[in-house]
Design a protein around this nucleic acid. Structure first.
Length: 690
DNA sequence: CAGTGAGCGAGCTTCCGCTTGACTT
C-alpha cells in the first residue's frame, strides 16, 4: 500500500476515487508544525534557529499519519505546489520521520493529472522550503517584536504585523484624504437636440476645437457666458463616427475576486462567502476556493465548450486563456463549477438560498469566460455651434454574447440617423452644476482589492485579516458597511509609521517577495536574508524603546466618582473611550461615554429612551458587528430594537415609532400593527436607494 | 447568515499562512 498525503481532506476523498485500493489518501489539514505561540521561537543569537513544535490541534492527526506511514510501503507527499505546500511536505518529512519520501505535484484534480504526477516524482525542494521559512520567521519577528512595543507605549493587547498594519494604514490614510478633501464646483453644459422627432442629449466638449477639462467651467457666470454666446447659433453635425465596440467577459474567479463580487452583488461578507464556498467545495460543486490562479483544466474547458455550443450555438463560444497577475503562486485552478453542465437551475432543489446564489455567480462567471464578446453598435457625433463643439454618444447592443449568462450593467441609448453638415434643432440647453466627490471609504471588497494589488496577504488570509483588525478595534464598519478608523487605530498606525516606516511601507511585502524568490532560486540563503533584515530592525527597535514616550490617552474631566468621590478621567480602551475612576485598581467604577461622529462606536440619536425616560437612545453594534439601537443607561435599562427609532410616537398605542431598513415607518410595539403610509418624499427616496 | 449588551485599565497580550470544524440556542 502507498500512502499519499495531501492538504485538504476533501481533496483526499476525491483522489481516493481516482486511485483505488492500492493507495491510501490522507490529509495533513494544512500545516503540521509551527513556531510556538507562547514565545518568539526564533533564536536570534544562534543564527535564527527556529523552534518548531506540533501544535496541540495537529497532534492527533500527526499521530495517525505517523502510524499509517509506518505501515505503508512508500509515502508520497502531494501537498500543493507552492511555497507553503513545499514547506508542509518538509514538515511532514520531519514530523513523521520519513526516509526519502516521494514528492509529487498537480495543479488540477483530474485523473490524468494525478496519474501523470505519480509517474514523475521528485525530491522536496529545500530551497523553496527555505523561502517559506524566511517568510514565516520574518513575520514572526515583525509581529512578536512590534506588538510588545505597542503594549509598552500605548496599551496592552495591541498587535502589529506585516499584513494587518497595512490594512489599517490604508483605512487611516483614506480617512485623512476624506478629511482634507474640499469639494470643487464645476459646470457642464447639456444640449437636448432633435432630429426628425427624436430627442437626444449632447454635452459641450470642445472650445475652438480644443477639448475642455472637466473642471474648466468653474461657476455659473462662466456657464452663462457660454450660453449667451450660443444664443441664436445653429447646431450643425460636424462628424459622425460609427464603429462596432466589443465587451469581453471577465476572468474566472480567484478568491479575491470572488469575495469582491460576492460582496458587491450579493452583499455577503468575505467571511460568509468563504464559509459558503467551503460547503460548495466539500459537496463537490466547485473546485478549491482558496486560489490566486486563473488556470482552467482542459477537461473543464472542453465541457464548457460543449455546454455553450449545445445551449446557445457555436457563435457564442470563444476559447480564452487567462493569465494570473505576476507573483501568483498558482497551486490550484481558478474557482469554477466542477461540472459545467450542472446549471444553477439543475441544483436549485439541492442548494439553499445563499449557497445557490453563490454557486450561480461562480457558474455564470466560468461559463461566460469562454463565451463570445458582446457587440455594440456605437456612434459618436460631434456637433458644432459657433466656436463650441457638443458631443453625443449612442450605443446599441447588437449581439449579447457572454451577457446571456453573466448579466452586467451597460447603458443603451439610441441615436437618430445623422449625416454630416446636417442642421439640428435645439430643444433646450441647460447649464448643470456639479461638485467633485471625496474619495470613497473602503468596504471589504475594495480593501481586499487594494491589499491584493500590492501583493499583501494570501487567499487564505484576506477574510481573517479583516476580522483581526476589527477585533482589535483598529477599524470598524459604519452604517454603510464602510471602514472607518478608530482613535486607537489612528494612534497605533501613526506610531508605527513614524517609528518603523520601512516595516509598514506599502511596498515592504513586494520587496520581501523578491528576496524570497532569490532564496527559492538558490541565489541567497534564508539565514543571510533574515540577518540582513533583523540587524537594522533590532537596532532601531532598541532606540525607539528608549526614545518614544508612552502615549498618555487620559483626558481630565469634572466628573467625580459616585462610589469613592475621587476624580474621574476619560480613558481609551479597546472599545473606545470610557469614564474611569482614578482610584483604580482599588475602585473599579466606570461609566460609558457617548460621543458622536466617526471613529466612535456609539452614535447618539437625541431621542429620550421610551422605556426608562432617562437615558438617550444610541446606535450600537453587536459583537458580530450588526447595528442595533439601545438605551445608553444599559444595563440599568434594557430597551433595545433592531430598527432605528425616530422621535415620534404611535397614534394608536403611543409606543415609539421605528424606521426599518426599507425606510418604512412603523410602530415598535409588536402587538400593534400601525404602519405609516409612504407619503413623504424623504422616506420614498430612501426606499428607492435600498 | 440564527446568535440584541458591559468591559475596556491590570493581572502577560502578539504574527502570517495552511487547513477544518468548533460552541449554544
Amino acid at each position: 500500500m502507498e500512502l499519499v498525503i495531501v492538504e485538504s481532506p476533501t481533496k483526499a476523498k476525491t483522489i481516493q476515487k481516482f486511485l483505488g485500493k492500492k493507495y491510501k489518501i490522507l490529509s495533513s489539514f494544512g500545516h503540521v508544525r509551527d513556531l510556538p505561540k507562547s514565545e518568539l521561537g526564533v533564536d536570534v543569537e544562534k543564527d535564527f534557529e527556529p523552534k518548531y513544535i506540533i501544535p496541540t490541534k495537529a497532534r492527533k492527526n500527526v499521530t495517525l499519519l505517523k502510524k499509517e506511514a509506518a505501515k505503508a510501503d512508500e509515502v508520497i507527499l502531494a501537498t500543493d505546489e507552492d511555497r507553503e505546500g513545499e514547506a508542509i511536505s518538509w514538515h511532514l518529512e520531519e514530523a513523521l520521520k520519513l526516509k526519502n519520501p516521494k514528492r509529487i505535484v498537480f495543479h488540477e484534480i483530474t485523473e490524468d493529472a494525478i496519474k501523470e504526477a505519480l509517474e514523475n516524482p521528485r525530491k522536496i525542494d529545500k530551497r523553496l522550503v527555505d523561502a517559506q521559512q524566511a517568510r514565516r520567521i520574518l513575520d514572526r519577528i515583525v509581529g512578536y517584536k512590534l506588538s510588545p512595543f505597542l503594549w509598552k507605549k500605548i496599551s496592552r493587547g495591541l498587535s502589529a504585523g506585516r499584513v494587518q498594519s497595512i490594512a489599517v494604514r490604508l483605512v487611516v490614510e483614506k480617512e485623512r484624504e476624506i478629511e482634507k478633501f474640499k469639494p470643487v464646483e464645476y459646470w457642464s453644459v447639456e444640449a437636448i437636440l432633435n432630429k426628425s422627432g427624436i430627442d437626444f442629449s449632447a454635452f459641450l466638449s470642445k472650445v475652438n476645437g480644443k477639448s475642455i477639462d472637466k473642471l474648466e467651467i468653474k461657476n455659473k457666470e462662466e456657464a452663462n457666458k457660454i450660453l449667451n454666446e450660443l444664443k441664436g447659433s445653429e447646431y450643425k453635425v460636424e462628424s459622425v463616427e460609427k464603429k462596432e465596440t466589443k465587451r469581453n467577459p471577465l476572468s474566472p474567479f480567484t478568491t479575491s475576486t470572488l469575495q469582491q463580487t460576492s460582496a458587491n452583488k450579493l452583499g455577503y461578507s468575505s467571511k460568509y462567502t468563504m464559509s459558503l464556498a467551503q460547503k460548495l467545495y466539500e459537496e463537490g460543486h466547485i473546485t478549491y476556493h482558496r486560489t490566486d490562479s486563473l488556470n482552467l483544466s482542459q477537461l473543464s474547458l472542453n465541457s464548457a465548450q460543449k455546454f455553450i455550443e449545445e445551449s446557445f450555438g457555436k457563435n457564442y463560444y470563444n476559447f480564452r486563456k487567462f493569465k494570473a497577475k505576476s507573483g501568483a503562486q498558482e497551486a490550484h485552478e481558478a474557482i469554477r463549477p466542477t461540472f459545467a453542465n450542472k446549471t444553477p437551475e439543475s441544483l436549485k432543489g439541492e442548494l439553499d438560498g445563499p449557497k445557490y446564489k453563490l454557486y450561480t455567480l461562480i457558474w455564470q462567471r466560468f461559463i461566460a469566460c469562454q463565451m463570445s464578446p458582446a457587440l455594440f453598435d456605437s456612434t459618436s457625433v460631434d456637433i458644432l455651434a459657433n466656436q463650441y463643439t457638443f458631443s453625443a454618444n449612442g450605443q446599441v447592443l447588437k449581439f449579447d454574447g457572454f451577457l446571456k449568462v453573466y448579466p452586467m450593467k451597460f447603458s443603451e441609448n439610441d441615436m437618430p440617423k445623422l449625416e454630416e453638415k446636417e442642421l439640428l434643432s435645439l430643444v433646450k440647453i441647460d447649464p448643470l452644476q456639479h461638485f467633485t466627490e471625496p474619495p470613497a471609504r473602503y468596504n471589504e471588497a475594495s480593501l481586499i482589492k487594494a491589499l491584493e494589488k500590492h501583493g499583501i496577504g494570501r487567499p487564505s488570509t484576506y477574510a481573517p485579516t479583516l476580522s483581526t483588525v476589527q477585533e482589535r478595534n483598529y477599524i470598524s464598519k459604519n452604517e454603510q458597511k464602510r471602514f472607518i478608523p478608530s482613535e486607537m487605530g489612528i494612534m497605533v498606525n501613526d506610531m508605527l509609521v513614524e517609528n518603523f516606516p520601512q516595516i509598514v511601507d506599502i511596498d515592504f511585502t513586494a520587496k520581501m517577495e523578491k528576496e524570497l524568490d532569490e532564496i527559492a532560486e538558490g541565489k541567497d540563503t534564508w539565514k543571510k536574508t533574515i540577518k540582513d533584515f533583523y540587524e537594522p530592525f533590532s537596532k532601531n527597535l532598541q532606540e525607539k524603546y528608549d526614545d518614544v514616550k508612552k502615549e498618555n490617552t487620559d483626558i481630565k474631566t469634572d466628573k467625580v466618582c459616585p462610589k469613592c468621590s475621587k476624580p474621574m478621567v476619560e480613558k481609551l480602551g479597546r472599545f473606545g473611550r470610557f469614564y474611569a475612576c482614578t482610584g483604580f485598581p482599588d475602585c473599579k467604577h466606570t461609566e460609558s461615554l457617548v460621543k458622536d461622529g466617526p471613529g466612535n462606536q456609539i452614535i447618539k440619536l437625541d431621542i429620550i429612551c421610551p422605556k426608562c425616560k432617562q437615558g438617550n437612545m444610541v446606535a450600537k453594534k453587536t459583537k458580530r458587528g450588526k447595528i442595533f439601537y439601545g438605551c445608553d443607561k444599559y444595563p440599568a435599562c434594557d430597551m433595545a430594537t433592531w430598527d432605528k427609532p425616530i422621535n415620534e410616537f404611535c397614534p394608536t398605542c403611543n409606543s415609539i415609532l421605528v424606521e426599518n431598513k426599507k425606510g418604512q415607518v412603523k410602530c415598535s410595539n409588536k402587538e400593534c400593527n400601525h404602519k405609516r403610509e409612504q407619503s413623504n418624499a424623504d422616506s420614498n427616496s430612501k426606499a428607492n436607494k435600498e
